[in-house]
Nucleic acid binder design. Structure first.
Length: 448
RNA sequence: UCCUGAGUAGCUCAGUUGGUUAGAGCAUUUGACUGUUAAUCAAAGGGUCCGGGGUUCAAGUCCCUGCUCAGGAGCCA
């Protein structure tokens, strides 16, 4: 039989009243004497299969009785519509074949703790919630690629091994690289995206990024996926407009293609439906004023003690409490733009009207989802860029090739980076970012 | 790195003031049942109470120490 003729549960309604063959795993089983109900999952969905002893015969019925959770089986039977069946359809089992009877499956239908589930991540992926999140993740990835491809962007792949730091060295994973010495795992493909944008105009790089930050929170991974578009002749306004359109496109795609998954996750869809565009924008300085109106202080650790500083001083970066306060009443993501130069990366363009600020923006998601996007117009003036590299104590020789981009036809250009897992966390309403990537890498976990 | 909390059956947990043989639900095994929805009912098996040290006639329980895990902070996407 050709693979094209294989039948999957997600399309089972195309085969009503026909006999079909399904392959899958036992998700759950309920016995009732001569009648057994098998909940079969095949990766595309689940369906109830009804095994009735008089129809199957003693021998085959004993096979059904021996099945336990996650046994792998082939089932032949007729597809029937039934109000009693979860999902509306069920299979009247005519024949069954066992690939393998499962041993004691550790993830039972009852509750489990976080640490047990993450230790069994390779099996946890089979559970309905995780299954739904992974399908939404796949949909988000595809939405991102479709969005940029549709606008004529070219996908370029930036290297994972890099010789130097993009922003600071303390958070780099270091590895040996033959006789050359140390190489570092890429924290961002941005510098390479900039070079590519000068060649191709509009590009995006999409791949994993590695950060050795010792963060231990529900929104940090040491390995995460990031999409980074970079566009020649785009200013900061263009950059924000693009980020907004992309975000709307992602949410719309998931709402269109993943209704079932969002239902399994019990996500409040009405909240996502409000993400339609015209995201609010506020400058950093206005945001500081607003925080002070709301009496939100800066909280700083001094000798292990939390000290509240009022009013919030201009020049300090926003943390979680500030982001939450600024977005609490909003249905859509918020752009904060024009940050103090000192707290931002060297490559961001200083505002020609105010050198204390850079043309940078962050997009903070609603529903406490935090920073989803960070971007900026890039510094295109070679002298200012050199000044900033020196201020940050970075090694000029590392950036020789990067400076060439400002030497040979420098142009205004902009870009941003969006964390895929944070976006998936927001859209799915997942409690923890570790649920938003198949195999999370975190400060204290690298297995499985 | 800092702060807080937790570690008892395969899993989720209870375990009184320190006191006889450490319990429950799920999972597993066996049996009953023709419509179950995390099925139900009956029975059985299953324990290095995280490791080490201490106090005590007596420690799962109190003290010290180490390890592991979780939540939060900072940093960031």
């Amino acid at each position: 039989m050709s693979y094209k003729q294989k039948i999957y549960i997600e399309n089972i309604s195309d085969h009503i009243d026909k006999s079909v063959e399904l392959n899958g795993w036992v998700y759950n089983k309920r016995g009732k004497g001569k009648l057994n109900f098998i909940l079969l999952r095949d990766g595309t969905g689940t369906i109830q299969c009804v095994a009735f002893k008089p129809n199957l015969g003693e021998e085959k019925f004993d096979v059904v009785k021996s099945l336990n959770q996650e046994s792998s089986i082939k089932i032949k039977g007729k597809v029937v519509a039934s109000e009693k069946a979860p999902g509306g359809y069920e299979i009247d089992v005519e024949d069954i074949e066992v690939y393998q009877l499962s041993g004691d499956y550790p993830i039972t239908p009852k509750e489990h703790g976080d640490s047990f589930l993450i230790e069994n991540r390779h099996l946890w992926l089979r559970s309905s919630r995780q299954h739904a999140i992974m399908r939404i993740r796949a949909s988000v990835m595809k939405a991102i690629r479709d969005f940029f491809d549709g606008l004529g962007f070219k996908l370029i792949d930036s290297p994972i091994f890099t010789p130097n730091a993009c922003e600071g060295t303390s958070t780099l994973f270091e590895t040996e690289y033959f006789d050359i010495g140390s190489a570092y795992l890429s924290q961002s493909g941005q510098l390479y995206a900039e070079a590519s944008a000068m060649a191709l105009g509009k590009v995006y790089t999409f791949g994993p990024a590695f950060r050795a930050e010792k963060s231990k929170t529900r929104k940090h991974l040491t390995e995460f996926w990031m999409v980074e578009p970079e566009m020649a002749f785009y200013d900061l306004q263009d950059d924000m407009e693009l980020a907004e359109d992309m975000t709307v496109h992602i949410v719309k795609t998931v709402l269109r293609d993943c209704r079932k998954e969002l239902e399994i996750l019990e996500r409040d869809i009405s909240k996502l439906e409000k993400v339609t565009g015209k995201f609010p924008r506020i400058s950093y300085s206005d945001a500081v004023d607003k925080l002070n109106e709301m009496d939100i202080p800066l909280i700083r650790k001094v000798d292990g003690q939390d000290v509240e500083i009022r009013p919030f001083p201009w020049g300090e970066d926003f943390g979680t409490p500030q982001e939450e306060a600024l977005t609490a009443d909003l249905d859509q993501p918020l752009f904060i733009y024009n940050y103090p130069t000192e707290i931002k990366a060297f490559y961001m363009k200083r505002d020609p009207n105010n050198p204390k600020e850079v043309l940078a923006m962050d997009m903070i998601g609603p529903e406490s989802s935090g920073e989803l996007i960070g971007g900026s117009q890039r510094e295109d003036n070679i002298d200012y860029l050199e000044e900033r590299i020196k201020e940050e104590d970075l090694d000029m020789t590392d950036f020789k090739w990067y400076m060439d981009l400002r030497k040979y036809g420098s142009v205004p250009h902009s870009g941003f980076g969006m964390g895929v897992e944070r976006t998936v966390k927001w859209i799915t309403g997942a409690k923890h970012i570790r649920e938003c990537i198949p195999f999370p890498r975190m400060i204290h976990r690298i297995v499985p």
